[in-house]
Amino acid sequence: MDRVAKIKVVVFPLSFFPLANLMIKALENNLGPDPASALTHGLGEWALIFLLLSLAISPARRLTGIGKLIRFRRMLGLFALFYAVLHLFAYLAFMLSWEWQTLLEDLYKRTYIIIGAFALSILIALGATSTKKMMKRLGKQWSQLHRLVYIAAGLAVIHFLWLVKSDYREPLIYAAVLTVLLIVRLRVVKRLVFLNR
């Protein structure tokens, strides 16, 4: 087992820690006055965190010169999908009690839910095509498809921003992080920053 594989063995179970922490708080009735909302929002926020971490892998690889970092990108992206799906199920189960009529009403009244649904749909498509077999089958189209991850991240940030009603500081921090990650992908910036890489 090489060093990267050993690190992944550690990172993989650690990635379940946010879920375990939320579940423990839920069991201890320590999620605040609105536990259903806190659990749902907590899962959604961790989906966004993992998504941004996966997007940070490529620039981190170029900055550090550690090519093997790329081997963590798919795992982090799949954890983003994992937490996003849990976010959806928590919303349906704990906030809507599986009442589909209420879901349709929410979709009509709350645009941020539609935005979130689009983001999740992209993540599902990317997760379904993340295997080496799908990479070979899609060829050049695979890279084009997986560039949609930036659109998914943008939609996720907008979803979070439109969700909050008063304190915008947290979603704006995520928006700033995503903006930086998008800027470093620009060719001109790449040439300047990674000139000697």
Rank of each mutant, 00 (worst) to 15 (best):
R71L: 14
A156C: 07
M1A: 14
T111F: 12
G32R: 13
L63E: 04
A36S: 14
L14V: 09
A125R: 03
K165I: 05
Y83K: 09
M75T: 09
Y174C: 05
L69M: 11
R191E: 01
F79V: 08
Y150A: 12
P33V: 12
G154C: 06
G154M: 01
L145T: 03
A119P: 05
T102D: 15
L104F: 14
K6L: 15
I122D: 06
L186P: 00
F17V: 15
A90P: 05
H87K: 10
L138W: 12
L27E: 11
P13E: 07
L103W: 08
W142N: 03
K68N: 10
W46E: 07
Y174F: 14
G77F: 09
L120R: 07
I49S: 07
S143R: 11
V11F: 08
D34S: 12
L145Y: 04
L69E: 05
R197Y: 15
I122C: 04
L126D: 01
D167M: 07
E170Y: 08
S166C: 01
A60V: 12
H41C: 06
I57H: 04
L86M: 14
L27V: 06
A152K: 11
L43A: 12
V149D: 06
L138I: 04
R74E: 13
Y83I: 11
Y112I: 00
I183Y: 04
F16L: 15
R62D: 13
R197D: 15
H41Y: 09
T179Y: 00
F160R: 09
L22P: 00
S143N: 08
M1E: 13
P33S: 14
I151M: 13
I49Y: 10
F160G: 10
V193C: 03
I70A: 15
E170I: 12
V85A: 13
L63S: 09
K136E: 06
I70M: 15
S37T: 12
L88C: 09
R187L: 02
H87R: 07
V11E: 07
A5M: 07
E105F: 13
V188A: 01
L104E: 11
H159R: 04
S121E: 04
I113K: 11
R191I: 00
H146A: 06
Y112Q: 00
Y150R: 10
L92P: 05
P35Q: 08
L31M: 05
V10L: 15
S54D: 09
W46F: 15
A80R: 05
L39T: 02
R147A: 04
L19P: 00
R61C: 12
L39E: 04
L31F: 03
T179E: 02
H41K: 14
Q141W: 12
M134D: 01
A119E: 03
K68M: 09
Y150L: 14
W46Y: 15
V10C: 09
F16T: 02
K165F: 03
L19S: 01
I49W: 12
G127N: 06
S15T: 10
L155W: 06
R61P: 13
L195G: 01
N21F: 14
L19V: 06
I113S: 02
P171C: 06
L126F: 02
N30V: 03
L53R: 13
Y150G: 07
L78F: 11
M95Y: 10
R3K: 15
L103K: 08
V193H: 01
G127P: 01
K190Y: 02
Y174I: 05
R191K: 14
T64M: 05
V10E: 09
Y168M: 13
